[in-house]
Every structure is written in C-alpha cells, then in structure tokens.
Lab assay of single mutants.
Amino acid sequence: KLLSSIEQACDICRLKKLKCSKEKPKCAKCLKNNWECRYSPKTKRSPLTRAHLTEVESRLERLE
C-alpha cells in the first residue's frame, strides 16, 4: 500500500492505542462500548529543516 492511502484509526482508538477496525460511521470498538466515534483530519507533519537536523546532530555528539 502507498503511504498516502493508509487509513487512520478513529480518535479514541488512537488515543487509547487500540486496534481500530476503521469502519465508518462507527468502528467496532466504539460501537461495542457506545463511545462517540470521530475521525479527525490527518495532520500534516512539517518537513525537517536543516537547522533542526544540525541541532539534533550536535546534541547527539555531546551525549556520545
């Protein structure tokens, strides 16, 4: 599967780190437990900047 097509777990399953069936409108866990089942939009991760990478590398060197 391509990364862009990976389905996201519902908010509660993601928060509780449960295996989500990803069914809509309610996944199996939410249906069974009568929880409100919501699927928040995916958040875009910002790409690493060179400055951040350099900072992490220098912190790693100090720890070694």
Rank of each mutant, 00 (worst) to 15 (best):
L63S: 00
R14A: 12
R14G: 05
K26Q: 15
R59V: 01
C20M: 06
L48S: 03
S58M: 13
K42A: 12
S40C: 05
R38I: 15
L48W: 06
C30A: 05
Q8L: 12
R14C: 00
P47N: 01
T43S: 12
A28M: 11
K32F: 09
R62H: 10
T54G: 07
C20Q: 04
E61K: 09
S21Q: 00
L3H: 09
W35T: 12
N33H: 12
L15G: 14
L31A: 15
L18D: 03
L3T: 08
L60W: 00
L63W: 00
S58Y: 15
L48R: 02
K32Y: 09
E55W: 15
K44C: 11
L18K: 02
E23Y: 03
H52N: 07
C27G: 03
H52M: 02
Y39L: 05
R59L: 04
A28R: 13
K26V: 10
L60E: 00
Q8I: 08
D11T: 03
L31E: 13
L15A: 11
A28C: 12
Q8K: 10
N34T: 15
R59N: 10
L18H: 15
S5V: 08
L53M: 14
E57A: 01
V56F: 00
S40E: 05
E36W: 07
L2W: 12
S40R: 06
C10F: 02
K44A: 15
A28L: 10
S40A: 10
C37F: 07
T49C: 05
S5P: 09
K32C: 09
Y39N: 03
R14D: 02
I6K: 08
K19N: 05
L63R: 08
K24V: 15
A28Y: 11
K17Q: 06
W35Q: 14
A51S: 08
K17L: 03
A9N: 04
K22V: 07
P41S: 08
Y39T: 08
K1S: 15
E55T: 13
D11C: 01
E7P: 09
E61R: 11
N33L: 12
N34I: 14
S21N: 08
T54D: 09
L60Y: 13
C13W: 04
P47V: 04
R45P: 03
E7A: 08
R14M: 03
E64N: 07
K22S: 03
K29C: 06
C30Q: 00
K26D: 12
T43V: 09
K19T: 07
I6F: 13
P41K: 08
R38M: 15
C37H: 02
L48V: 02
I12T: 10
C30K: 01
C13V: 05
C10D: 02
I12A: 10
S21V: 00
S46K: 03
S21R: 01
I6A: 11
A9D: 01
R50V: 05
R38C: 13
A9K: 00
E23V: 12
P25G: 09
D11I: 03
N34V: 10
R45L: 05
E64M: 13
L60H: 03
R45K: 08
P47R: 10
R62P: 08
S5H: 11
L31K: 15
A28K: 12
K22L: 05
L18E: 02
N34K: 13
L15W: 14
S58V: 14
Q8F: 14
R62C: 09
E23K: 12
C27T: 00
L48I: 07
H52P: 00
K16F: 06
K19R: 14
R50L: 07
C10R: 06
C20E: 04
L63F: 13
K17H: 08
L15D: 11
L60G: 04
L60V: 15
I12D: 12
K1H: 07
R38A: 13
A28N: 11
C13Q: 00
L60I: 10
K29Q: 08
S40T: 10
K1T: 15
